[in-house]
Design a protein around this nucleic acid. Structure first.
Lengths: 146, 146
DNA sequence: GGTGGGGCTTCCAGCCGTGGGAAGGTCAAG
DNA sequence: CTTGACCTTCCCACGGCTGGAAGCCCCACC
């Protein structure tokens, strides 16, 4: 099975499959006589695993861990659960930060007349807003693929 | 005022100030005889504006717009409000997507015994998680901005 | 037996926002 | 004048991809 077929079957683009292989996330695929990468149904299975994990927002590093646990028949479910719980905690933190942003903006927007006049409390806030340091939250998974 | 002082006064790192200047977000700073960038209190004001906006999650492009509006005395508050509302909508979409991820993971984690045994519903889900055939980018959080 | 096209290969470059660091110039205090 | 804190430019890296170019390879069709 060529990389294109594997891509279609797994939902991971051919580009990404090569990238994952090159970065060591997945093992190097076998090659045909012509030098093409060759994939088995099992490989597709693994690619789907990766895709599903990315859809759930796991980072590449976390997926690396999950893949190892997946392959390890003697793994303990606690190890997997630990990663999942950490991911949940991370999500909750990001959600909370984003909710605060939305609330602040909502407050500003609702006190803004939104008409033709130049007065605007939103700009007024930006102008002098005292700034705590809510670390960047626009990274990682919430940044949709372009 | 040197870049370091401006950085401390605005909360934007010197690195970022240079980056913002280089990428055209903020105007080029004047230079001293020795080639150092020179900042006024007004420049610091602008940098704080940028920082506050980034903390509220506005993208660089949005901040560019906001800065123009900020400088434009004849701007209409509706223009600013439009950007703020778009940002709120974007935040809400992201929050929703992340809540779904968290809920799914929570469900999986709570059905995982998390002990020494190898059985794990989290891996079981990843293993066969529904991968939609149509190449939708990334499930719930697709619809990439920009 | 040719040929055209699509798929495959590699490599290189970029996105955003940020931090790190090297090599060298500038400044103010001692 | 020396020291050392600061500044300058430049390049590299991250994550997580995406795109493009140049060049093989393979298969169907004539």
């Amino acid at each position: 099975m060529n990389i294109g077929d594997a891509a279609r079957a797994s939902g991971v683009s051919a580009k990404m499959i090569r990238y994952y292989e090159q970065s060591g996330l997945i093992p190097k695929a076998g090659r045909t006589a012509g030098g093409y990468r060759d994939y088995s149904a099992n490989d597709v299975h693994m690619l789907r695993f990766v895709r599903r994990a990315r859809d759930l927002g796991f980072s590449i590093v976390e997926i690396e861990e999950l893949l190892q646990l997946w392959r390890d028949r003697s793994r303990q479910s606690a190890d997997v659960k630990r990663i999942a719980l950490a991911r949940i905690a991370d999500l909750r933190r990001r959600i909370h930060a984003m909710e605060e942003m939305a609330a602040t903006l909502q407050h500003l927007a609702s006190s803004c007349s939104g008409d033709h006049r130049p007065d605007c409390p939103i700009l007024a806030d930006l102008e002098q807003g005292e700034v705590a340091k809510p670390r960047r939250t626009r990274g990682a998974i919430d940044e949709a693929p372009q």
